[in-house]
Amino acid sequence: MLTKKQLELLSFIDKRVARDGVPPSFDEMKDALKLRSKSGIHRLITALEERGFIRRLAHKARAIEIVKLPEALGGTPSAPEPSSFSPRVIDGDRVGQPPAAMPVSSSAIELPVMGRIAAGTPIEAISESSHNVAVPTGMLSNQGNHYALEVKGDSMIDAGINNGDVVVIRETGTADNGDIVVAHVEGYEATLKRFRRKGEMIALEAANPAYETRVLPAGQVKVQGKLVGLIRTY
């Protein structure tokens, strides 16, 4: 299952290829999806290519080939691979409430793992529970709902957060400088970064010198949760 923006882009490319015989330019894609920059289109194109829906041909301008279409666009349904992932992008606040936390014992509670969060190149955050994880009650505060996300990427390794870790998040729309947060960026991507407000701008800082700090207008960043704990499986 594709995210809303991925599905919109794939549909737009498919229609333009059928009409003109060539795919649209990145500028046309950006305008059609009402995105602020072509970097968002690059990320969506990469995601579609990784999922096997399109193929980019090297050394050719505007060379995008439709490989297959999802069932929503008239394609033939296929069974997902065992390791497949079915994302549904957060649109503003997470859709609905996570499944209720379930007590495991007096010292642990089960939280829903709501999918993956990027600690690297931003990817979509997920609003569907994939499984539960047992979390010590000492990690949880008495205020707000909690959920868990699997970390993908290495941009927060100097903060002790590795690829494959599970982070425990308390839902909140506010953050203090220095907090590590789930940040929803530009309306269609989410990432795990350290939060800092600088006047009318928000800096999302990585904890890895290989990644640059992203500085964005405050209106393009929405805090959706704050890191309160981490679980690592060896």
Rank of each mutant, 00 (worst) to 15 (best):
M102W: 04
I90P: 05
G52E: 05
P80H: 06
R55F: 01
V133D: 06
L73R: 09
S106N: 10
E49I: 01
I90H: 12
G115N: 08
V89L: 11
E124N: 10
K68T: 11
S107G: 11
S83G: 06
P87K: 01
S129L: 00
R88Y: 11
L73D: 13
E110T: 02
I66L: 05
A125M: 09
I126S: 14
P98K: 04
V95P: 02
S127H: 11
R51T: 01
N132R: 11
P122Q: 05
P80A: 05
P112Y: 05
V67T: 10
P103L: 01
D91F: 00
M102G: 01
L73K: 07
M102T: 09
A100M: 07
V113H: 13
A72V: 00
S107L: 11
F53L: 06
R94E: 14
V95T: 15
E71L: 07
R56W: 04
A58V: 06
D93C: 02
G75N: 12
S127I: 01
P77H: 10
S130P: 02
P98C: 01
L69V: 00
P99R: 06
E50K: 15
D93R: 14
G96T: 02
S107M: 05
S107Q: 13
R55G: 00
S107C: 03
E124H: 07
E50A: 15
I90W: 14
T137R: 15
E81D: 14
R94H: 10
S86E: 15
S84Q: 13
P82E: 12
F85H: 09
I126G: 15
A118V: 09
